[in-house]
């Protein structure tokens, strides 16, 4: 009876350990994929002739392509006053 219990507990422990290892494995595979995307895929893509000219402009002008709203963008603030001036002049 004791041996049966022992075997059952042992199996259950092994299953838990296996599940934990599998989860940790998936976690590290995920991290590795993010790392590859950041340090291998995108840097390589930036060297492609179609993409390089635009990435060069973004880097030179220090544009943050992450901004998702106009209040985050300094360029949009400048654009507003310039366009407004030109439209006012056109009305005159």
């Amino acid at each position: 009876m004791d041996q049966k219990h022992f075997l059952k507990d042992w199996k259950s422990d092994m299953l838990k350990k296996q599940r934990f290892s599998s989860r940790m494995g998936k976690f590290f595979v995920g991290l590795a994929m993010i790392w590859m995307f950041m340090f291998m895929v995108l840097p390589w893509a930036q060297t492609l002739p179609v993409i390089k000219p635009i990435i060069d402009i973004i880097s030179e002008a220090d544009i943050d392509a992450n901004q998702y709203f106009y209040t985050q963008s300094e360029e949009t603030y400048q654009a507003g006053s310039r366009i407004q001036f030109r439209l006012e002049q056109a009305r005159k």
Binding site: P53, I54, I57, I58, A61, I63, D64, A65, N66, Q67, Y68, F69, Y70, Q72, S73, E75, T76, Q78, A79, R82, I83
Partner: peptide, 19 residues
């Protein structure tokens, strides 16, 4: 997104980016 619009517009020059 705004940032990508500014980045793409900059490729057309100042006027394109402002518009």
């Amino acid at each position: 997104s705004t940032g990508a619009v500014v980045a793409a517009g900059a490729f057309l020059g100042e006027t394109g980016m402002f518009v």
